[in-house]
Simulated scan of single mutants.
Amino acid sequence: MSDSNTTHFTNPSSFILLGIPALETAHVWISIPFCITYGIAILGNFAILFIVNRETKLHEPMYYFLCMLAITDLVLSTSILPKMLAIFWFNSREILFNACLMQMYFIHCFTALESGILSAMALDRYVAICHPLRHSTILSNPVVAKIGLAVMFRSCTFTMPYPFLDRRLTYCRTNIIPHSYCEHIAVAKLACADIRVNNYYGLFVVFSVMGVDIIFITVSYVLILRAIFSLPTKDARLKTFGTCISHLCVILSFYIPSLFSFLAHRFGHNIPLNFHILLANVYLLVPPMLNPIIYGVRTKQIRDRLLPLFTHKVT
Score class of each variant (00 low, 15 high):
residue 85 L to E: 09
residue 19 G to I: 07
residue 30 I to N: 04
residue 95 I to V: 15
residue 55 E to Q: 12
residue 99 A to V: 06
residue 95 I to Y: 06
residue 19 G to Q: 07
residue 23 L to P: 00
residue 78 T to A: 15
residue 77 S to P: 01
residue 78 T to G: 04
residue 31 S to C: 08
residue 68 M to T: 10
residue 50 F to N: 08
residue 19 G to D: 07
residue 37 T to F: 07
residue 64 Y to M: 12
residue 84 M to H: 01
residue 88 F to A: 09
residue 99 A to M: 12
residue 43 L to I: 14
residue 66 L to E: 05
residue 80 I to P: 00
residue 31 S to G: 14
residue 82 P to N: 10
residue 83 K to D: 08
residue 23 L to I: 00
residue 68 M to D: 14
residue 40 I to D: 02
residue 24 E to C: 00
residue 32 I to T: 05
residue 72 T to Y: 01
residue 64 Y to D: 14
residue 90 F to N: 12
residue 66 L to I: 11
residue 46 F to C: 11
residue 22 A to W: 11
residue 42 I to C: 10
residue 89 W to T: 08
residue 63 Y to S: 04
residue 21 P to H: 09
residue 29 W to Q: 12
residue 99 A to I: 05
residue 23 L to H: 07
residue 28 V to D: 10
residue 66 L to D: 06
residue 33 P to F: 08
residue 47 A to K: 07
residue 82 P to Y: 09
residue 21 P to T: 06
residue 52 V to F: 05
residue 84 M to L: 14
residue 48 I to S: 00
residue 88 F to T: 05
residue 100 C to S: 15
residue 89 W to M: 10
residue 63 Y to K: 02
residue 55 E to F: 05
residue 20 I to K: 07
residue 47 A to T: 15
residue 54 R to N: 13
residue 27 H to R: 06
residue 80 I to Q: 02
residue 53 N to E: 11
residue 95 I to G: 04
residue 33 P to E: 11
residue 63 Y to N: 08
residue 97 F to W: 13
residue 32 I to L: 15
residue 33 P to L: 10
residue 83 K to F: 09
residue 31 S to I: 01
residue 24 E to R: 06
residue 21 P to E: 09
residue 55 E to V: 11
residue 59 H to P: 02
residue 74 L to V: 03
residue 58 L to G: 05
residue 27 H to S: 06
residue 78 T to D: 04
residue 30 I to C: 08
residue 55 E to M: 09
residue 79 S to K: 04
residue 36 I to P: 02
residue 45 N to M: 02
residue 95 I to K: 02
residue 76 L to D: 01
residue 43 L to C: 11
residue 93 R to E: 14
residue 42 I to M: 13
residue 71 I to V: 15
residue 40 I to K: 02
residue 45 N to T: 03
residue 51 I to N: 01
residue 33 P to M: 11
residue 57 K to F: 09
residue 96 L to H: 12
residue 48 I to G: 01
residue 50 F to M: 08
residue 36 I to S: 05
residue 56 T to S: 14
residue 84 M to P: 00
residue 42 I to F: 12
residue 100 C to F: 09
residue 51 I to H: 01
residue 36 I to H: 05
residue 20 I to N: 06
residue 70 A to E: 01
residue 98 N to F: 13
residue 52 V to Q: 03
residue 26 A to F: 15
residue 27 H to F: 14
residue 63 Y to A: 02
residue 35 C to N: 06
residue 100 C to G: 14
residue 87 I to P: 03
residue 63 Y to I: 05
residue 54 R to G: 01
residue 46 F to R: 05
residue 57 K to T: 15
